[in-house]
Amino acid sequence: MKRNVPLAITFIVGAVLIFSVFIPPMENWGEDFTLFFDIIAVFAFFLGGGNLLRVHLTKLSRRKQDWPYSIVTIMGFLLMLAAGLFRIGNPGDINASLTEQGSLFQTIYDSVFVPLGSTMYALLAFFVASASYRAFRAKNREATILLVAAFIILLGRTPLGTIVTGWVPESFSILQIPNLAIWIMNSPNLAGQRAIMIGIGLGVVSMSLRLILGIERTYLGGDDK
């Protein structure tokens, strides 16, 4: 019973979603199911938020390792929640837009959230450098081709590419580095990407069928019969 009900739901929803593509009177059913998911996901947020508080409060009360960080987490969570729910500092009333300029919510968003997000994203620049230092080594023929392509793309994405090969006559313009970079992206890279995408598409079909038919049931908590 514990397995069969979820399996039946998976089968019915999966089949309905597939058929709703082809049968106009069922068109809206697909949208409705998407909406159901969103509603469930919103309620599930309480689970997540609750879990976050529980984990960190436990850590705090038991003085586990690195417990001071938990204070920051809990304070941040509660502050942002209150700022949004009660429209603290919002020039409008309780119905005003959440993101009104001058509200505490928007101020925290602009001066804490935005810089922190950008900082994490900016780490990419450093990691790209260290990863390419390790990865781009001419270990064999394929790796060497990869290395050369990387050089062309790196140059082609900067004005230097134009400067270095600007002298190449227009009749051989494909040999100008920016154009060569676009060719690499557009032809060999694209061909490979498409092959991977076709494989992924088929993989999704086969995975979905396994799920809909109830052959794959690990995600429901184990595959015991």
Binding site: G199, M207, R210, I215, T218, D223
Partner: peptide
């Protein structure tokens, strides 16, 4: 890579039914 992620569970389970889907 891509489809291998989806194939993984079938591959690891070793069940014939799952491998058939691949």
């Amino acid at each position: 890579i891509g489809e291998e992620l989806f194939a993984a569970s079938a591959y690891l389970s070793g069940e014939p039914k799952q491998l058939g889907s691949l």
